[in-house]
Every structure is written in structure tokens, then in C-alpha cells.
Amino acid sequence: MSEVNPMRPYLGTLVGTRPLATGIRLFQVELNPEEREKFSLWRPGQFLFFSVLGVGEAPFGFANIPDPQRGPVIEVAINKVGHVTRAIHALPLGATVGIRGPLGNYFPLEELKGQNIVVLGGGIGGAPLRPVIQYILRHRDDYGHLTIIWAARSPDLLVFTDEYDEWRAAPDTEMHVTIDKPFEGWTGNVGLITQILEEVAPSPENTTAITCGPPIMIYFVGKSLSKLGFSPEQMLTTLEARMHCGIGKCGRCNLGEKLVCKDGPVFWQSEISKFLESFL
């Protein structure tokens, strides 16, 4: 039996933070030197528990890939909605925080080499997809065409807007941004993500679509992708659920016999459609 206590967080320091959208900020954590070697590097799609010591912890997807130069600086995008996230938003720079992870499975990006990729992010659901984009851009030659479709209810809820130019400028990459309803001053696309997706109509030929957003969006994006000819074996998504352990013990995150923390959070649409219990 391993001597590592999976319930004990690694300690780190909050080294940076910046606003991403209304109520959403990006937090950067550097693990303390003595903790670094025990912490294994994460892959796109995995998640972590972020602790404010004395307040509590909550799960979030990694929002970046490990940087070979800067070492394990962890980035997470956090929406201020609960008591833990309120406390995270109130942390001063330099504060000690706890990180448990990396947890869960990951996007099988190695297996997808040679394919075209469609990335569909809704609201803060874009955060766990950012490492996918970063990974593909870093290994640009290994993948075909990259289509990024980014959506939010309103312009102020779009995340990582300052990175769109860089993404757009990447070779063989297109990006579409949309908001649900007309908004004063917004000159870009207006309409639900499914609408834009069907307009852009990426070919299903040798393509995998990766979606993250609210459950209802995942559901309807799946329908649109089917319409475009994508099979459930070509659709990947990542789900979220309330969790307290992240390692299949606390029982909380099950959808039927599947545990979001252990069997997920990344699932193929073909698996989800066989779930006994709906994720909606």
C-alpha cells in the first residue's frame, strides 16, 4: 500500500491572478519546492482540488499545460459561486494554498494525433479546454485542422479573450466566438453555440470534437454534431459533479455506476449515452 495520503494537499503559493470574465478569475499557483517532486505533471482534462486552508477545498479542471520552462505553475479558472470560491477570490498574492491532484482521466490527445480537432467551449467550460488548445498548438504538426468555437451568454462571460489573437494566428487554425443574445457594443456572432457549430459545419472526416460547458449545452452540441455526421465515438466531453475526494471513495459523483472523478471527468459521448443515470 502506498504511503502517500491522497487526502493531504500539496502546499503551494498563489503567485498570480488576473480577471478572465465577470466573476471569473485565473489563479496561478506555484508548488512549494519540497512538494514539487511528489507532484506528478498533469495532462489536459485532469482536475485538482484547490484548498483555501481553514475554509475548504473544491474541484477544478487544470486550465493550462505544464510549462517546460516555468515548471509546474498551475493555472485554474474559478467562478465565484460558492463559499470556497469566494474565499479563493479573496486570497492575497503570496497566500499558502493546497493542491490535490492531478486527478481523473484525461483527453486522449496522443491517440488523436493526425486528426482534425474541433474544440467547443461554453462559458467557464472553456477553461478545461484551454490545455487542449495549448497542447495542440505546442505539437502543431501532429494534428490536422483545429476549429475553436467559443461561446458565452454575454461578452463579459467570455474567458481567455486576450489569447484569441494568438489562437487565431496559429497555423491551420480557425476560431469562432459567439454570444447567446444581442448585446450592446458586440459586433461579433450572435446565437447559440449549436447554431454557429452548424454554420461552420466542420467535416466529421477524421475529426474529433471536444466539448465542455453546462450539461444542457453538452447535450445539444451532441445533437448538432450528430446532425453534421459525427458519431458518438468522435465526441469527447468532460463532466463536472460535486465531489469530496476525487479518488472514488466519497461516493458523491456517480452517474449510475460511473464515477465522474475516477472513470472521468473525460467521457466519450458513446459512453455517456449508455449511462444508466442522466448527466443532465
Partner: peptide, 29 residues
Amino acid sequence: CRCFDVRDETVVTPQGERIVRRVRAWDSC
């Protein structure tokens, strides 16, 4: 049954000692 909840709590003992700890407790589906 094994479901649990995890929280941080701060308690002050009758002796005035402040203890911050992470506890887990039974929970139920």
C-alpha cells in the same frame, strides 16, 4: 455505506486554543 463530506473548520477550545482542521464526516446520498 461509506459516503463522506469533507470540510475545514476552526474551533476554539474552552482553554482558548484555536484549532484549524480538515474533517470528514458521514454523509448520505
